[in-house]
């Protein structure tokens, strides 16, 4: 870490990590939303409206990308979390921003549960060749998408409160 801090300032380093975490999360959100919509929107003929086109994807294709992006995003998030605990949470406590903190802590819990769901998600999408578990696969994917959307929005709110450049 000392070597990195000699090249760039502490603030710039954590800002780069935060931006990377955000970018990976955007990619994850896109992948999961595509996959979820393809599961819930009835497949119609192509060249319809934008929603049909957005949902008209091969859902299984996204599985590996979702797993990798969730793990990488989680890794960066977990790394930033240590800095958040000291440099963000304490000032937020001093300012009395309790609800935002609570929502953020809930996000941390939910992304952890999401991480633990990944083996089941991967196995159901990959090994269930006969589509025996189709319903549970669909509901598991929708659950992961809900967690991802909640986490993305709350992460954005916390960043607005005390994130980049603060």
């Amino acid at each position: 870490m000392e070597l990195i801090y000699n090249l760039i300032s502490v603030e710039v380093f954590w800002s780069i990590l935060l931006i990377l975490h955000g970018l990976i999360s955007v990619a994850l959100l896109g992948g999961l939303t595509h996959q979820s919509l393809s599961l819930i929107v009835k497949r119609r003929q192509r060249n319809q409206n934008i929603l049909d086109r957005f949902a008209g994807v091969q859902s299984a294709v996204y599985t590996n990308a979702v797993c990798v992006l969730w793990i990488v995003s989680f890794f960066f998030g977990g790394w930033i979390y240590s800095k958040y605990r000291v440099a963000v949470r304490i000032p937020m406590e001093q300012q009395g921003i309790w609800i935002t903190q609570g929502l953020f802590e809930l996000k941390e819990h939910l992304v952890s549960l999401g991480l633990f769901l990944l083996p089941a998600y991967y196995a159901l999408w990959t090994f269930d060749k006969d589509k025996v578990f189709q319903n549970s696969t669909k509901l598991l994917t929708l659950t992961l998408a809900a967690i991802c959307w909640y986490s993305f929005l709350i992460g954005h709110i916390v960043n607005n409160v005390r994130g980049f450049g603060s």
Binding site: L113, P119, A123
Partner: peptide, 16 residues
């Protein structure tokens, strides 16, 4: 493989 992964996910979520 499905059983191992599903049980891992279930136990890990409750355990967490």
């Amino acid at each position: 493989r499905i059983i191992a992964c599903v049980v891992f996910s279930l136990i890990a979520c409750i355990g967490y």
